[in-house]
Amino acid sequence: MSETSNPQLRARDDIVLKVEHLVVTFDVGRELVQAVSDVSFDIARGETLGLVGESGCGKSTVGRAIMQLPPPKGGKVIFKGQDITQLEGEALRKTRTALQMIFQDPISSLNPRRRVKDIIAEGLQIWERPNQRARVEEVMEAVGLDPETAADRRPHQFSGGQCQRICIARSLALDPDVLICDEPVSALDVSVQAQILNLLEDMKARYQLTMVFVAHNLAVVKHISDRVAVMYLGKLCEIGSVDAVYQHPSHPYTQALLASIPELETSQEDAIPLLQGDIPSPMNPPSGCRFRTRCPKAQAICAQQEPAMQASPSGIGDHFVACHFPG
């Protein structure tokens, strides 16, 4: 894999998290599958980066690789100036507390045999923080759980939305800098989903969080993000501010994604053709540009040469696209 240059990495001094040339591989039987290959992006303090793509594009894997769960095969994850892929043991465990994660399935994220207050206090107990009780009560109140009635219960006594609140409270207890949300609302009902999204926005403001928001739903991502990165088959296709990516999508894949969302507003017969076919298997990705097999604009060069990240023709700052024929 040739190392491409990364114009999308910004030269700002408030960058909290920077991911460079991230590569994650999995053993599938005898074969090695590159779930994430050469992905680079950065997040500034207080920013929310939305990571979108369809299933199998590696977006969740990126989220976990940032946490070093498991550590990536290649590349760097630079958190506050330190490459955490080099850390091990105690140092890694300690650094992880500043990066927290919430997951898609709130019910499977909570140990059924423990009480809510113990679940939330877990990190505080591990690191022997002072005033654990007060802290637990504070975060419970913050996420809208009543410490009086909820603390002594077990997860199965709560609904899915409530469980997600517990997960959020747990992740906030250690006062992290970065919160990685892995499809946090996709298992929830629409009416509950809105509550949790609003809650995440509130928590972000209250605890000065920087967020990575992984989701497949573009509308949800738009609501919560400042910047958006679009992934396809383990590669980054497009990255830029929400307005740039949603108003001026430059990668044909982003355009197709946006066109395929079922919208409530009356029929928008779109000019952009719908995508044909399915996502190829990541076991054996297409040569050159990985999207070319479904791309309406694909030409010969797309099969030969992998497109590098370049400034988008939208002309908007910090908007980059990896396509031979953007726009």
Partner: peptide, 9 residues
């Protein structure tokens, strides 16, 4: 939840 515990250190 096992992953979450690891994330917690």
């Amino acid at each position: 939840y096992v992953l979450a515990a690891r994330a917690m250190g």
